[in-house]
């Protein structure tokens, strides 16, 4: 579900100041690992929603497991799904936009 942004204020900052440290020899590995974790989060979110939904509908006797397998959605729903897949891809690959490198902040103690 896409969040509805606050109306009376600017969007809240999403990125902390400074660069993200890379730990692997090729920082691409850090980026892919980061994407994997975001993807896992999305996967879990989706799974929990589907499981919750199935439990709710089955408890109300709305469908049987066979009917769920055989159901096909309409064209409008298919368009909506495409939009959601694009957002999923953008979220999962947000790490590609993150600048990696040595921290610019030094110990000033």
């Amino acid at each position: 579900m896409a969040s509805e942004r606050g109306k009376t204020m600017a969007d809240i900052e999403r990125k902390a100041k400074g660069r993200q440290k890379a730990f692997f020899k090729d920082e691409a590995t850090d980026k892919i690992l980061s994407s994997l974790l975001v993807l896992l989060s999305e996967h879990w979110t989706l799974k929990q929603r589907v499981l919750t939904l199935e439990k709710l509908l089955q408890s109300k006797g709305c469908f049987t497991p066979d009917e769920l397998e055989e159901h096909e959605v309409d064209e409008q729903a298919k368009m909506e799904f495409e939009g959601m897949r694009q957002k999923l891809l953008a979220d999962v690959f947000a790490s590609l936009e993150q600048e990696y490198g040595e921290s610019e902040i030094k110990d000033e103690s």
């Binding site: 509805e4 942004r5 730990f23 690992l33 980061s34 974790l37």
Partner: peptide
């Protein structure tokens, strides 16, 4: 690497609901 990503996810996971309910 995973701990750094988890740290960023901590903040990002709460910013969406805060913004929505601001």
């Amino acid at each position: 690497s995973m701990r750094c990503t988890a740290q960023r996810m901590v903040w990002n996971s709460v910013i969406d609901p805060i913004e929505r309910n601001y």
